[in-house]
Simulated scan of single mutants.
Amino acid sequence: MPTRSVDVPLDQLRKKFDYFSVGSDQVWNPNYVDCYRWMFLQFAERDQRVALSPSIGMSSLSSPYARRQISRGLRGFDRLSVRERDGAELIKQLTGQDATVLVDPTLVVTANSWRSVACGRMVPDRPYVFTYLLGDRSVEQDAYISAVLDELDAVQISLSDKARDGEVDAGPAEFIALIDGAARVITDSYHASVFSILMGTPVTIFRRGGVFKSVFQTRNAYADVWTAERSFRRRVF
């Protein structure tokens, strides 16, 4: 998708565009947000603001400051949707507003659309298992990965957010291609799970933090992915 840079003060942006959208992964999580004005589009007019499947990433807020800032930001939207059911319930508690639960924005386009922007320069010629693990791995998880590698007679391609030794230097385009071409994906990542589902790649999902659990025991957000994906596929045309 083409993009362009707009080098003007935020307060002047609303004069250049009709609408502004905020969405995707944990953009409303108070542990990550450092500019509420930006993440809640407060530089734009109210009727220009669109919330397209943003994620709060939490089912409750203990900080009075976070509750106050997020409540204030949410009340600035007439077009309000979220990615998770927990997020919709939290918004209802904070503001009394009803938020529509929509699929993750990555599911709005087809697998072939993602393939058109993928880069296969890191995809090997032989079978491989792509491991994308953001949390610490347990001994049990390492043993499971080794067993899968032996079963599939595959090599391992590893990626995380910790710059571990031996990891590939992949960007978003390579990330998509590595998932698409893998014999198996093993991950504790929401979006690696989403792309595996979308691409039809076999996937094992770990609970993050070194605890070995099956996909059915992971947090509710993953269950939402499967539910939303099945619903989404029925509506593709």
Score class of each variant (00 low, 15 high):
V103W: 08
G76H: 01
E89R: 12
R67T: 13
A99S: 12
R85H: 13
V82Y: 00
P105L: 00
V101P: 04
G73N: 06
P105V: 03
A88F: 11
S81T: 15
P105T: 01
K92H: 15
A88L: 08
S71Q: 13
E84Q: 04
V101S: 06
L102S: 10
A88H: 05
L90S: 02
D86Q: 15
Q93R: 11
R75K: 15
K92R: 15
D98W: 08
R67M: 14
A99G: 12
T95R: 01
V101D: 07
R85S: 12
S71R: 14
R68Y: 10
G73W: 02
L102N: 11
G73Y: 03
L80K: 00
T95A: 01
R75V: 04
L80H: 03
A66H: 13
L90P: 03
A66G: 09
Q97T: 05
T95L: 00
Q97N: 10
E84F: 02
G73K: 03
Q97S: 11
V82E: 00
L90D: 01
R67H: 12
R68N: 11
R75M: 11
R75I: 02
R79C: 08
R67G: 12
D86T: 14
T100F: 13
G87T: 02
R79K: 11
T100N: 09
E84K: 01
G96Q: 06
G73V: 04
G73H: 05
V101F: 05
Q69Y: 06
Q69P: 07
V103M: 12
E84M: 00
S71C: 12
Q97R: 14
I91W: 02
T95Y: 03
I91R: 06
R83T: 02
R85T: 15
A99H: 05
P105R: 01
L74T: 04
R72Q: 11
V101K: 12
G96E: 05
L74S: 05
G73P: 13
G76S: 08
G96H: 07
L94R: 10
G96L: 09
G96D: 08
R68D: 12
G87L: 01
K92F: 13
G87Q: 02
A66D: 13
R79M: 07
R83F: 00
V82K: 03
R79Q: 09
F77Q: 00
G76K: 04
L90A: 03
L94K: 08
A88C: 14
R72H: 13
R67Q: 15
A66Y: 09
R79W: 08
D86L: 14
R68K: 14
S81P: 02
T100A: 10
V82D: 01
S71E: 13
Q69M: 13
L74A: 05
R83H: 03
V101H: 09
G76M: 04
D86R: 15
E89L: 14
D104T: 08
L102D: 08
K92I: 09
R75D: 04
L94T: 05
G73L: 05
L74I: 14
E89G: 08
E89C: 10
F77P: 01
P105N: 01
A99W: 02
L94I: 05
R72S: 14
L102W: 14
Q69I: 06
G76I: 05
P105M: 03
V82P: 00
L102G: 06
G96T: 06
G96Y: 09
D104I: 03
R72A: 13
L74N: 04
G96I: 08
R72W: 10
D86V: 13
R79L: 06
R75E: 07
